[in-house]
Design a protein around this nucleic acid. Structure first.
Length: 263
DNA sequence: ATGGTTGTGCGACAA
């Protein structure tokens, strides 16, 4: 079974890229973030025509929005409110083998890494703390996967320059310590890091603002696939898929794909 | 130190 997570940055604008990704990689499940559309404008028929006839989504106008596109039936679809907001940052479903799948979009947090000055950063820290509390409860599911744009690059090797990124939102110790705490509390395994050397740089996002994103290569690993130890035992592969960053009108994030052998 | 780009939807604002 192949699962992809991708911050698509508008599903309506990038339907051709989604179609190409689905065709070239043949995933069974695609988890999207920043679909940026309410359910009323979601392209159900186009996505169904790609083979993803089971669709779970939480959308809103203009911002955020997450969706699970699946060839396999989705059961027990649910959304959770985070930080008391109905802002379409989470959707969950159970796969036919009983695996509980969560798709998350953590707040980006704005530009200033100070919770007193910047409400968006305070919201992000609160969200990460809530992920730790929630994760401890979620441990009751032995088979569980968490994917999404977590908007934090936790390790020094997850950014192009650890030293220069330390004061930059996405890599501050306030964020990285909270993300690692949430990972630990939920008993989550960082699956992408299981399939590469510890010193290997891994990125899933490159800014639109670079003149030449590939030449400057100032990337960050903001997108993640986490799973329980029982699920990790069956993992065959988990890595970023960099090619879509070079396609026409790309998202600034690239997909991450994991492959599992059936238990 | 600054500015750089993209999205929604036609305003700013968010990333």
């Amino acid at each position: 079974m192949k699962i992809i997570t991708w911050n698509i940055n508008s599903i309506r604008l990038r339907l051709p890229l989604l179609r190409r990704l689905a065709s070239e990689l043949a995933p069974d499940v695609i988890c999207l973030q920043e679909i940026k559309t309410p359910e009323a404008h979601f392209p159900f028929s186009e996505v169904s025509d790609m083979g993803f006839v089971h669709i779970a989504l939480s959308g809103m106008k203009g911002y955020n929005g997450v969706a699970i596109l699946s060839r396999l039936p989705l059961m027990e679809i649910s959304v959770r409110e985070w930080c008391g907001k109905k802002d379409a940052r989470h959707i969950a479903a159970t796969l036919p083998d009983g695996t509980r799948l969560h798709n998350l979009y953590v707040p980006a947090g704005g530009d200033v890494p100070d919770a007193g000055e910047n409400d968006k950063f305070a919201h992000k820290l609160q969200f990460l703390d809530e992920m730790a509390e929630w994760g401890a409860e979620e441990k009751r599911h032995p088979r569980r996967i968490l994917v999404g744009d977590l908007n934090v690059a936790p390790l020094p090797e997850d950014v192009w320059s650890h030293r220069q990124m330390l004061p930059v939102v996405s890599h501050t110790p306030m964020e990285t310590e909270r993300l690692v705490a949430a990972q630990k509390a939920g008993g989550w395994i960082d699956l992408m890091r299981c399939f590469t050397q510890p010193e290997q740089k891994l990125y899933t996002w490159w800014s639109y603002r670079a003149h030449d994103w590939r030449a400057s290569n100032r990337g960050r690993r903001l997108d993640h696939i986490w799973c329980s130890p029982e699920v990790a035992e069956n993992a065959r592969f988990c890595m970023p898929v960099p090619e879509p960053r070079s396609w026409d009108r790309p998202s600034d994030h690239v997909p991450v794909m994991a492959e599992f052998s059936l238990p």
